[in-house]
Amino acid sequence: MRADLSRFEVVRPRALDEVLVRLGEGGWSVLAGGTDLMVTLGALALPPGRYVDVWRVDALRGITVTDDAITMGALTTYADVQRHPLLQVEFPMLVEAARRSGAAAIQNRGTLGGNIANASPAADSPPALLAYGAVLELHSRAGTRRLAYADFHTGYKQTLRRGDELIARVILPRRAAAAAPVAGGVRDGVVDAYRKIGTRKAQAIAKVGLAVRLELQGGVVADAAIGAASVAPVPLFARTTAAALRGRPLADAIEAAVAAFGDEVTPIDDVRSSARYRRQVAVNVLRDVLAAVSAGRTPVDSL
C-alpha cells in the first residue's frame, strides 16, 4: 500500500441520520463497498480527505417487494441481486448485469448505490436500470426526493445528486415478466436482452453494454427502452433509438432503430478500446437482438 492512509479520515456510522449530518456539513465523500474507491486509492488517485463509510448502515440494506415495485436499499450488492428470486424472474437483465460484474469478491462488496453514484459510463448495472425505468430515492437533511434514473446522469461523472444527498434506494416498477421466445417471433409480450462485450469473459470492464426491453402487441412495438454502457459520457438512455421503434411493427423498424442508435452513441477512443469498434459493435449487437426477437430466435449471446 503506497497511499498515505494518515491523510484519510474515515467514519463508520450505523445510523442513516449521522451519514446525512456529515454530508450536510460538506467536505465528506461516501464510501460504500469500496470496489471503485480502493482501485483509485491503490493508484494514488483517490483525493485525501474525509470519507463516510456507509457499509454498516442497515437502513440502506434489504430488498422489499410490493404489488407495484421492488425496492432495493442502496447497499444491495451484486450478490444480493443474483440471489433474489423475484428479481431473477422479473428483472433478469439486472441479475445478468450483476452476474457479469467483476468476480465473486467484487460481487460481494459492490453495491447498486455505489455503481450509480460512481457514475462510470462503463458500469454494468445502469443499462439494465435504465431499461427498467428505475427510480432513485435520495435522502438528505433537507428531505427525501425521488428522481427518474433516466434523468440522473447529466454529463461525464456528473449527476443530479447534490453533495448533501445520499442515494438511499433504487426502485424498480414492476411490469409484466419477459416472455420466452416463441417460434415465428414474439408478437405479444415483453422481451429483455442484455449484452456485455468485454473481450474477456469474466472480470471485464464493458467495451459495450446493452440492455433492451421491448413490449410487443400484435408484432408492433408498444414500448421500448434501451440502456447502454461505454458508448457515451454517461450510462446512455437511448431515447431516440427507442422512439424509432415505438409504434411500428418490429420487423420494419429494425434498420431505422439501428441507424438511430449509430447516431445516438458517442463513444471515444481510450486505453480499453476505440470509438470505431464501440460504435460498430453497439450497432451490430442491437441489430442482432432486434432481428432475433423479430424472427423468434433466442438471440445467440456473444462469445
Binding site: I197, T199, Y277, V281, N284, V285, D288, S302, L303
Partner: peptide, 11 residues
C-alpha cells in the same frame, strides 16, 4: 476457434 462476426471476438 469460434469467431463472432458481430463483435470480432475470438474464443
Amino acid at each position: 476457434v469460434t469467431v463472432d462476426l458481430r463483435t470480432a471476438e475470438v474464443r
